Amino acid sequence: VKKMAKAIMADPNKADEVYKKWADKGYTLTQMSNFLKSKTAGKYDRVYNGYVIHLD
């Protein structure tokens, strides 16, 4: 998940494709939050927020 999150950060155009894969795998927002937690607070906030919007 972190590898794909980094791919989104490097190229935001990949976001919809990645979010669809995550949704197809049934990842919940709680799971995504836990996967994307980082020592650098807020590092993956943009990715998480994008997934929230995708699921909505």
Rank of each mutant, 00 (worst) to 15 (best):
D45Q: 08
L36N: 00
A41D: 11
Y51D: 00
Y44K: 02
M32L: 13
T28F: 01
A10Q: 12
K2H: 06
N13I: 08
V18S: 03
D11K: 05
I53C: 09
D56R: 14
K14A: 09
L36P: 00
L36Y: 03
D11V: 05
K21I: 15
N49I: 12
V47C: 01
S38Q: 05
S33C: 11
G26N: 06
Y44F: 09
G42Y: 05
V18Y: 10
V18R: 01
Y27R: 01
T28G: 06
G26T: 03
K3F: 10
R46G: 14
K14W: 06
I53K: 15
V52L: 10
D56F: 15
S38N: 06
A41L: 13
Y51N: 00
A15W: 04
K37H: 12
A15I: 04
L55I: 08
G26V: 01
Y19D: 00
K20D: 04
Y48D: 01
W22K: 01
Y19G: 00
G50A: 06
Q31E: 11
Y48R: 01
D45P: 01
G26F: 04
K3D: 12
D24Y: 09
D45I: 06
T30F: 13
K25V: 12
K2Q: 07
K6D: 15
K25G: 06
A10F: 08
Y27V: 05
A5Q: 03
S33W: 15
K20S: 10
S33F: 14
K39Q: 11
T40Q: 12
I8L: 07
Y27G: 01
V52D: 03
D11Y: 08
D16H: 11
D24G: 09
M4S: 10
P12C: 06
Y19P: 03
Y48F: 12
D11P: 02
A7V: 11
Y27A: 01
T40V: 12
K43R: 08
K21C: 14
L36G: 05
S33Y: 14
V1F: 08
D11H: 09
K6Q: 14
K20P: 03
K20Q: 12
A10G: 07
E17I: 08
K14Y: 09
T28P: 01
N49E: 14
G50R: 02
P12R: 06
V1R: 04
I8K: 03
K14M: 14
Q31T: 07
Y27W: 07
L36T: 00
D56A: 15
K2L: 12
D45R: 07
K20R: 13
D16F: 14
K2T: 06
K6R: 13
W22A: 01
T30L: 13
K20L: 05
V18G: 03
